[in-house]
Simulated assay, not measured.
Amino acid sequence: MKISAKINRIVDNPEYATKAYASVTLDGMFAVHGIRIMDGENGLFVNMPSTSFQDNDGNTKYRDTFHAITKPAREAISKAVLNSYNYAIEQSQVTEIEIEQTEGEEEDIEEDLSENFEPVMA
């Protein structure tokens, strides 16, 4: 089975346990949306899409709307989603470059601009 994973949105808030939302495509025939990448006590894990409901005692319960039946299938989906997440995080990293300005450099730039400035008449 071919599993393709795509990160739909990265959550950029360190206070939230949800780090991203993903979708997977199974053999190019079925799509599953609403998969969440969560940060738990033991690190990142994949949380399948679910719906909530009230049990007889009024407690809120959750039931997966999609889940893998076998352990190898569950591991393959998790691996595909987490690999896609890690790749998306690597691609979103920003490189910062700091340019140090020496004394007098700002004046030189202003002089160069004023020398080369020609007003445009409309």
Rank of each mutant, 00 (worst) to 15 (best):
R36K: 12
N86E: 14
D39Q: 08
S23Q: 06
N56I: 12
I35K: 01
I77V: 15
H33L: 13
E103Q: 12
N83I: 06
T18L: 08
M38C: 04
S92P: 02
I7S: 03
F45H: 13
A22T: 05
D57A: 13
S114Y: 12
P72H: 10
G43A: 02
K19M: 05
S114E: 15
G28M: 09
I109Y: 11
T70Y: 03
E15P: 02
T51F: 09
I7C: 02
F45G: 06
M121Y: 14
V81D: 00
L82K: 03
V120P: 01
I109D: 10
T18I: 06
K2R: 14
A17F: 08
E96P: 00
V24M: 03
E107G: 01
Q54G: 06
E98V: 12
E90T: 11
S84Q: 06
A17V: 05
A122R: 06
A122F: 10
A80G: 02
T95V: 10
L26H: 00
L113Y: 09
V46W: 00
R9F: 09
E41R: 10
I37C: 01
A76M: 05
S84Y: 01
K71N: 06
Q93K: 15
D39E: 15
G104K: 04
I3G: 01
Y85M: 03
I10F: 05
V46C: 04
G28S: 04
Q91C: 11
D27Y: 02
K6V: 15
A80C: 04
N42A: 10
Y21S: 09
M48Y: 15
E98K: 06
E105F: 11
E98M: 11
K6I: 12
V94E: 13
A22E: 01
E106D: 11
L26A: 04
A76H: 01
Y62P: 06
S4Y: 10
I89T: 07
V32M: 04
N13W: 02
F66K: 04
A20V: 02
P49W: 01
G40M: 10
E115K: 11
V120C: 06
K71C: 04
L82D: 10
I37N: 01
G104S: 02
F45E: 11
A68D: 05
D39C: 07
A88I: 03
G43R: 08
V46A: 01
E106F: 07
R9C: 09
M29G: 07
N47T: 08
N56R: 07
I97K: 12
M38S: 02
M38F: 11
P119V: 05
E110P: 00
Q54P: 04
N86I: 09
K61R: 15
M48E: 13
K61M: 15
K6Q: 14
I37Q: 02
K19E: 12
T102A: 11
N13V: 08
Q54D: 13
A88M: 11
I3P: 03
M48R: 05
S114M: 11
E75S: 09
M1E: 09
N8F: 08
P119E: 15
P72K: 06
F45T: 06
Y21L: 05
E96R: 11
F117R: 08
T102V: 14
G58F: 05
A17G: 07
S78D: 07
V94H: 02
N116K: 06
F30K: 06
D12C: 04
A68L: 07
F45R: 04
N47P: 00
M121W: 11
Y16R: 12
E106K: 08
D57Y: 15
